[in-house]
Design a protein around this nucleic acid. Structure first.
Lengths: 337, 337
DNA sequence: TGCTTTTTATTAAACGGTTACATTAATGAT
DNA sequence: ATCATTAATGTAACCGTTTAATAAAAAGCA
């Protein structure tokens, strides 16, 4: 049985499809459709439970009321919770989200943008990876609203919602220094993103501020492509080789979790003589014995800002005005445990 | 600058749009378009980077190559990881996912189905909630492929991928009994879903098998609407009031995490005298000291089965055949820690 | 009354593809 | 030479909306 169309409604109400369309879109008043007519048609629409075909509508109007969300991995708790908040807020404004994970694969990422384009998504929310610059720039010249978050790409002028990673890492490192630590290791993931480098900068800055000289030997980069087990093993090797380390700052929550596994396996106690702090919080850190301090990223605020920027961009693009550049930088919060 | 259309390609190649369309859709051979023509047109398409407008295509063909995913909460690790796997596999078959969280709100859930319908999604993957029966039945009579997973609804004949919850809870309880426990509490979430009841059934069954009589006083239901803090407090009250409890089975990983917070706050040791086991695993359980046993759900296999069922349904519906009913039940695995 | 203005509703052209059907040119059969 | 067949491409209808343009009827006004 074919789904209802505006034609069926029109026939049933004995009016033209235009009238129905006007009523559906709240343009009835403006088009001076009589109240009785409106009431009559609306009754029929409700009775039959008619919902206009969004695909046809999109074809005609050019907008799909859909936002494309591209992240590294939707199952990562950070992205998952952002995705949830974004979806919720977008929904309230009549937008739906199509998501995709790049898995840090540039070809897939670029393919996704192409695919989203062919599906005419109205706007893009992207946690970008190196190599996407040109594709994003292309979107911008088409006046498509784009908001990047979590990371940005050097030389790319696009609206963004970022965390002050220098500050966060600075606070975390300072915290360890205040606890009297001298040999503070820094463990980070090895990807070419400013965000990641900033964390290192913050770490260095805090050391310098306290006149501690940074030791490159206790700064460890873990390949992104590592499996969980490989990472744990790399960390075991690292900490075994550097017993002088008396504190560690982990650059991501994922790495810190691996670190905890590593310490468990090594039977290495976390206590006043060996401190651990993580960038990006996680339930585990609160529950762990002893509990682990962390730099918390304001997930909800990130989602809020992202969605409000994209919605702003969307209304701007509807009115054919020029897109504006908005750069939001949020602070992270040190949770001392 | 307006995006390219098939007309632009046709003009450039000096052919009709039909020819271009045939070539785009791989029907060139069947339509006996000459090789030189094909080569010429394909060259132009590649040069200009033309991608056909999927919206127009959808309007004409009636399928959007889109699957709607409805879960309770996309940020829940279980659903997030399923979402990731499903997206990945769907992508490989040319399908995209639109997702939404019901937040256990029936009105929202039903609204989502309506919205997905109006967007003409080709198929539905749903972790359903009570009250959606009629909406799902409607989809089925329209011959739309639907696969439910994680839970099913009584009286609803739809393809499903489920876990044997009776078995899982049985194994978990049996494990505690074998450790010599006599007063085994059961903590679960208070929602009207068979899945949840099954876990209780498994618990009861194991007790009965060992001739332990179940004590309703140490079976606790936590309201779904609780905040995390409320849950922790409820649990503290519960365990304080029932000091005789020597082991607990938590019905969901989320509740078990709350339980761990509760025990931490109560200063209650988890050891050979007080055992804890969780339904559905979580990184935290492995890392916790002591580590927590759990019943692990086979996420990847669930995703595999779900996607393969939905793809099967999708090809069936393309060929206008009758949809078949497939019921897959997977086992969960006891992880003893 | 005859003309303009306002009110109310309709007609028809898009939007960008797909595809049944029509057309033309070339080849083959008789 | 004539007609049927096949190869290769084009024409136009259609998918379900939105919306500019227009028409018809009612009202206002001299």
């Amino acid at each position: 049985m074919k789904p209802l169309s505006i034609k069926d409604i029109a026939k049933k109400a004995n009016v033209s499809i235009t009238t129905v369309s006007f009523i559906l879109n709240g343009k009835a008043e403006k088009m001076r459709i009589s109240q009785e007519m409106i009431a009559k048609v609306e009754k029929i629409i409700k009775e039959l439970g008619f919902k206009p075909n969004q695909v046809a509508r999109s074809l005609r109007t050019g907008n799909t009321k859909t936002i494309g969300l591209i992240v590294e991995d939707i199952s990562n708790p950070f992205f998952a919770s952002i995705a949830r908040l974004i979806e919720d807020k977008a929904y309230k404004h009549g937008y739906k989200i199509i998501y995709s994970s790049t898995e840090n694969n540039l070809d897939k990422a670029r393919g996704l943008i192409k695919m989203f384009k062919s599906r005419q998504v109205d706007g893009y929310i992207i946690a970008p990876m190196v190599g996407m610059e040109e594709d994003i720039r292309e979107l911008l010249t088409d006046r498509t609203p784009v908001v990047v978050f979590d990371r940005n790409l050097p030389g790319l002028e696009v609206s963004s919602v970022l965390i002050d990673n220098v500050e966060g890492a600075f606070l975390a490192t300072q915290f360890l220094i205040q606890k009297g630590k001298k040999n503070i290791a820094f463990v980070n993931v090895d990807v070419e993103v400013k965000q990641i480098k900033d964390r290192f900068t913050g770490y260095e800055k805090a050391l310098k501020a306290s006149k501690i000289k940074a030791d490159p030997n206790i700064c460890k980069l873990i390949p992104f492509s590592n499996t969980a087990e490989e990472t744990t093993n790399d960390l075991i090797d690292f900490f075994t080789a550097n017993p002088q380390i008396d504190a560690v700052l982990f650059g991501t929550n994922y790495l810190a979790v691996r670190g905890l596994f590593c310490f468990k396996e090594m039977n290495k106690k976390i206590d006043k003589d060996f401190k651990v702090i993580a960038y990006d919080d996680h339930d585990i850190f609160q529950l762990h014995s002893p509990s682990i301090s962390a730099v918390e990223q304001p997930t909800e605020e990130i989602a809020d800002q992202v969605i409000s920027l994209i919605l702003k961009g969307l209304t701007i693009s509807e009115s054919f005005e020029e897109q504006q550049l908005n750069k939001v930088v949020l602070s992270s919060r040190l949770i001392e445990r």
